[in-house]
Design a binder for these strands. Structure first.
Length: 219
DNA sequence: TATTGATCATCG
DNA sequence: CGATGATCAATA
């Protein structure tokens, strides 16, 4: 948290200069750039390991683009959605729950209308789901998982789910993976991922900020 | 114009 | 290939 607090107010221009990396003109071909730069500063292990960013702390790092009034501009990717082998898997054992046990949220200015170099880092929030939040996520996860098990993947759209939604997650639309079909047969479908809705993330950031303010601002 | 569905870059 | 980090952009 001390390391994260040191990033408050720093611009990506500054951070990139210290790191010796170029600032992209647009995120179009550099999606994930901001997140990886922050990973570097916080000492998170890079790579594509299916693990938390800080394994010994049990902390997952998430960089979230926000508007000037601190509202998330994007949904938050959680993890790949298993489409097979879900029988008997409980919420407690799920990938989603494990990922979200503890998250360090780093809000960053996500306004596309200003140059990336000028965008700054906001106040970090260390979050653990409350019983209510856990219940909300659990309900969505269980309903989505049930549909997947029943072979209804294709009818699950991003409109489903209160806090958690299912959306395609792949390099492009031609990528296919195995799933269960309507009649229990094996079918090919676009890989899916779990994402947190913006409204859910917004509440986390808001409550987290209020807590930090109550605790006294000692950055 | 907000959201869903699509996409980009990189790594092991 | 599927995981990581996410944002883009067509369209409802």
């Amino acid at each position: 948290m001390q390391r994260a607090d040191q990033l408050i107010g720093q611009s990506f221009g500054d951070l990139a200069r210290y790191a010796g990396v170029e600032v992209p003109t647009s995120m179009r071909h550099a999606k994930g750039w901001a997140g990886q730069l922050i990973e570097l500063y916080l000492g998170a292990t890079a790579g594509s390991k299916q693990q938390q960013d800080f394994p010994t702390l049990g902390v997952e790092l998430k960089t979230i683009p926000v508007s000037p009034d601190a509202k998330p501009l994007e949904t938050t990717y959680v993890c790949i959605t298993p489409l097979l082998g879900l029988n008997g898997v409980t919420w407690q054992q799920s990938n989603v729950r494990n990922k979200l046990q503890q998250v360090l949220w780093i809000p960053v200015d996500g306004r596309r209308e200003i140059p990336i170099a000028e965008r700054t880092v906001g106040i970090p929030i260390l979050w653990q789901p409350s019983p209510e939040e856990d219940q909300l996520l659990r309900q969505d996860w269980e309903e989505i998982s049930e549909q997947i098990i029943l072979g209804q993947v294709e009818s699950l759209t991003a409109r489903f789910g209160t806090a958690l939604q299912l959306r395609p997650k792949a390099a492009d639309g031609s990528r296919l993976t195995d799933a269960v079909g309507t009649h229990g047969e094996l079918i090919k479908t676009r890989p899916r991922g779990y994402y947190l809705r913006k409204e859910f993330t917004q509440q986390i950031l808001l409550q987290g900020l209020q807590q930090r303010l109550q605790a006294g601002l000692t950055f």
